[in-house]
Computed example of a mutant assay.
Amino acid sequence: MSTDSTVTTVATEFADGVLTVTINRPEAYNSLNKQLRAELKEAFQRAQLDDVRAVLLLGGPKAFCTGQDLKEHIADLQAGAGMGKVVEEYNPMIAELVAVDVPVIAAIEGASAGAGWSLALHCDFRIAGQGASFKAAFPSIGLATDCGMSALLPRIVSDAKAREILFLDRKISAAEALELGLVTQVSDNPVADARALAAQLAAGPTAALKEIKALLRRETLAAADAEADAQARLAVSADHKEAVAAFLEKRPPLFSGK
């Protein structure tokens, strides 16, 4: 499952009804580049086959997924590509995850940020390690949310708390995430506990669980489309250009509000 014959950014394993999908870009803190987005989309399509009864989504010990690969993003901007990848790659990837009708469990170790946090929020269960952290990250680089976060976050933590989290863009610890209901459990061994939960769910009444998930599911793809429009506008904003320059120059950005 790779667009590159020598490098695979997603590893998959299927056993006993559980499809395990592992994000595998440790050298880039599991940030999302073009290949990883394509491979995750393929993995989530595989998760929709009849033999899959539960899905386990894993990152790495240092990072679950840190969102957009900023080096790739800078290269895209320099090439005049803008934010087309949100519509062409991010939203289709998320659409396939939303379409998975069996339970999806994420084991989250290390950092989860930006679109990587959105991936986790789309899962039915999130088991975090003690050192896990969560950050929207979008305002810090002069952008809006994507991948449906603007719909998911208020639903989980309340509208007021979502505004605080997104506007102030502060990092949330695993302990606070549990208190806010952003994660199901905080564990000393999140991968093992997530595997055990996936096995339990895979051995359960799959048809009933599918129906329950369908009843609970709310439409987030419309929000993702609206977010894509906002990203397209912000990609050419002065603040985003300043944020990119600050990243390259390793200094804090000076936002002008434009």
Rank of each mutant, 00 (worst) to 15 (best):
S2H: 10
T6R: 08
V7N: 04
T8M: 08
A11Q: 15
A11P: 00
T12C: 10
V18C: 04
V21K: 07
N24G: 00
N24Y: 00
N24W: 00
A28W: 13
S31E: 01
Q35D: 15
A43C: 05
F44I: 15
Q45L: 13
Q48G: 02
L49F: 05
V55K: 03
L56G: 03
A63C: 07
C65S: 15
T66H: 03
Q68T: 15
K71Q: 07
H73V: 09
Q78A: 11
A81Q: 14
M83H: 01
E88Q: 14
N91Y: 14
P92Q: 05
D101K: 14
V102A: 10
V104D: 08
E109R: 04
G110T: 11
S112R: 11
G114Y: 14
W117K: 05
L121Q: 12
I127K: 07
A128S: 07
G129V: 06
G131T: 09
F138G: 00
T145S: 10
G148Y: 04
P154L: 05
D159L: 08
D159E: 15
A162I: 09
L168H: 14
I172Y: 13
S173T: 15
S173A: 07
L178R: 08
V183Q: 01
Q185V: 04
S187W: 02
P190E: 05
V191C: 03
D193M: 03
Q200R: 07
L201K: 05
G204R: 04
A207Q: 12
A214V: 06
L215Q: 15
R217G: 02
E219L: 03
T220Q: 06
A224G: 11
E227D: 05
Q231A: 12
A232N: 11
A235C: 07
V236H: 11
A238S: 06
D239H: 12
A243I: 05
V244I: 13
P252D: 11
